[in-house]
Design a protein around this nucleic acid. Structure first.
Lengths: 339, 339
DNA sequence: TGTCTATATGTTATCGTTAATCTTTCAAAT
DNA sequence: ATTTGAAAGATTAACGATAACATATAGACA
């Protein structure tokens, strides 16, 4: 059975204009008289014509699709961001194609490959690792793109991210000024710039208070992720040689607080806890957790940058660093005397 | 500046075979000798050739894209399902295009329109309302599709959903058998089949225990959603003319439990609470909440059905109803005597 | 009256790929 | 020696739309 999909040709036959004229009428090309345009549009509507985007894109070179490449969809923050991107892009008449690496970063190049193959007009990319080959790939193919959430070394490219260093600094100063002297730092993935910058900022802060790296027990990101996946963050708590916990993201803090509560350890009485709001900008900071956050929306800003970049590839690269603040959710206080 | 993207023609020129032969080599067409194929593939690789999917799809009629149409991305359950769909589709060499209605159901038709325009090979659709025009639209355009999570009246179409009626029944019997006689039922969106079926199942169950609809205070879905959005579910609790709460989805139960706890009302001592696990199948049921769930994965099954449907449009429509179970998370018990 | 210009539309070429059909070559089978 | 046919590849024609260019008509103006 042949597909009976209506094409421009069909519309053309019915209304008596050529395919070209019909095409222009449906794209609201200005050079057509109102009456003709209305007639053609009505005919197309009546016949149930739906433009074949693939043909259109092939010829025009524009697909009206933007791809976003993400690690996975299990993180609610990410999903919120995707939702917002979708919203913003739709306003500008773009469709969002989410390419998900399923936590396998070796797929990054393949995803970019796919995006280029699909003919997307631009790419929003959350780099997890500092691996530039993928990026050069985009540059080589003249693909407009914006890097989100992460810094990439030695790369002149549009970037939007939080001021992670400042975040680490704020967290460190906050805890140190309260009197804490021993810390547990639950990392994110080690190769991400967020992790590196936050930890460095943290170190810098405690050094201002005469403390050193030796006063911080740093748990590797993989260990943290494993514990989280196995629903067993409690094991991260021991030995309890600290009075304050800094965790890379809120998702870790919540189960951690449950675990502490279940063990009769009070927050912030016995242990203070602070974490990072991992880009969550949709809502005000979550209650009940002291956290470093930004009130700017990285999705919105990233989309805006990409739209500008798609409009003009020759713009100089821009680097937006979102300011962060500390939200006092009441989970930090001076350490108790007994400790 | 002209795009310098490598095309089949470029590869053809370099390796001396015609465009057609190159195309076939790159698609692993069987009719080519190993040596030729390898040579062409290597040449393409070296030149950095990336297939133009739009051209390919236009000609071949297959895009290798599947669209999923969802309400929004703020629900973690949905995101988990999307993640799983992506995984399953990728195995079968399809890309997933997520079309998000941003909670505006009037966009359903537009989304289907977009999907058809993009030339997707199939659609996974979460219908929220029982409005068939969209569906007929797909049928008319010979678009393979699968309905997820909801029943649609008078529609012969592939469907995968939970046994909501059975779920309501299980919840009702569980509570009634414990001795509860007055209930608070926090609804989902009224027009969704899940809500209708669960409530009906619940009524049926309590009737088995000599109770009637008069013993259930049903809060409309919009009220529940509003309260949730405003972070104010506590208001739903009053008047407290019940000993057990049934809530449409777990997301409502958790803040509710917090609110109850904050008011010194113990669970399940003073009030029992049970809810529905809204399709979450990735992980075992969440702890600490008695809930109706399925251990089958709707995403996986839905994708499988769609793949089969795409393979053969003439298959008879299938209707898969996933069995549900009750998970005892300890939030239900016999009502206290004082009440 | 004849040239000019703007408006409204038609003609043709092309985007990059794949499908359908055709040609050549060469070895096996009669 | 002739037929057969499979293998390897070339040629040609689409897919559906849009861009670039061409034409016809009508009124404006010299």
């Amino acid at each position: 059975m042949k597909s009976d999909r209506i094409t421009l040709k069909d519309v053309s036959k019915v209304c008596g204009y050529t395919v070209n004229t019909v095409s222009r009428a449906l794209r609201n090309d200005v050079k057509l008289p109102e009456s003709t345009r209305v007639l053609i549009q009505k005919t197309a509507q009546d016949l149930g014509y739906i433009r074949n985007s693939m043909a259109s894109s092939l010829r025009s070179g524009r697909s009206h699709i933007v791809a976003v490449i993400v690690n996975d969809l299990h993180n609610q923050h990410f999903c919120d961001l995707l939702n917002r991107m979708d919203q913003e892009l739709r306003k500008a008449d773009y469709n969002l194609m989410i390419l998900c690496m399923q936590l396998d970063n070796s797929l990054a190049e393949k995803m970019i490959h796919t995006a280029i193959s699909l003919g997307v007009d631009g790419i929003l990319y959350f780099p997890t690792f500092d691996q530039t080959p993928y990026l050069e790939y985009m540059v080589k193919n003249h693909m407009p793109f914006v890097l989100l959430d992460r810094r990439v070394n030695d790369m002149e490219a549009d970037t939007v991210r939080c001021d992670d260093c400042q975040g680490g600094l704020l967290a460190g100063r906050h805890l140190a000024s309260l009197g804490h002297r021993r810390f547990l730092f639950l990392s994110g993935i080690e190769t991400s710039s967020s992790q590196i910058d936050r930890l460095n900022g943290f170190y810098q802060a405690i050094q201002e208070y005469g403390l050193s790296e030796a006063d911080v027990r740093v748990v590797p990101g993989t260990e943290v992720e494993n514990a989280l996946a196995q629903n067993n963050v409690a094991e991260l708590l021991y030995p309890m040689d600290y009075t304050a916990i800094v965790s890379f993201r809120d998702e870790v803090s919540y189960p951690l607080m449950n675990a502490l509560g279940a063990r009769g350890i009070s927050i912030p009485g016995d242990v203070s806890i602070i974490s990072f709001d991992n880009l969550k900008a949709e809502n005000p900071p979550l209650p009940n957790l002291t956290s470093i956050y930004t009130d700017q929306n990285i999705a919105e800003i990233g989309v805006k940058m990409l739209l500008e970049r798609m409009d003009d590839l020759s713009l100089p690269p821009r680097n937006v660093i979102l300011p962060v603040k500390i939200f006092d959710g009441g989970t930090t206080s001076a350490p108790s005397q007994g400790k």
